[in-house]
Amino acid sequence: MNSDISIVALSLQIALVATAVTLPLGMFVAWLLVRKQFPGKFALDVIVSLPLALPPVVIGYALLWVVGTNGWIGQLSESIFGSTLAFTWLAAALAAAIVSLPLVVRSFTAALAGVDPRLEVAARGLGCGPVRTFLTITLPLAYRGVIAGVLLGFVRALSEFGATIVVAGNIPGRTQTVPSAIFTRISAGDTDAAWRLALVSVVLGIVALAIHNWLLKRSANGIDANQPNGRAG
């Protein structure tokens, strides 16, 4: 049981760090995709979405190249910390972030697209700078979709297995997450212990998705409708 708790704790830690990366990055990418016209927009959309279409193992393998001894991130971290990121919990967090980014960007894109851009133009005209406009107008109007996207990204990061096991391994106490621990236990025939963690995954997933769907349903129902005009007249 003690090891179960530390496995869940490490998984949560990795998923939280991954979310801390995808939240600002995903917001910036979604904002670019929704509000800006620029050359390469289509390519950016494809690249960000690519992890959805690739086997996670491929992403893990690619990441291993980048963070390993030969990759530029690997060399950078080796010169600073004296070791590469490969087979550390940070590598697991990075893998989880990349795999969950497309889901986060998609949710954020939908949330931002639901905010009437004229509200932002109006705010600017009232003396509000672009960053403050985003924080006081856009974000408060998109917050349900944003929180939903964060939750979706978080559960995706929690359940990440394929990329993580390639780039971070399955080292108990260091990089072993809930999915990789379940895999180990199934391989070892320890079905009771595997079921315990599987149950934890199911509960976490249900809670997060229930909140996610509730938030999106509320905005779809038009409560706090994000329209400059409610009824006519």
Partner: peptide, 15 residues
């Protein structure tokens, strides 16, 4: 610019 604008349908901040 300190220029105020009033739009056709108000464009008030709904929140």
């Amino acid at each position: 610019r300190r220029i105020g604008t009033v739009y056709q349908d108000g464009v008030l901040f709904p929140h």
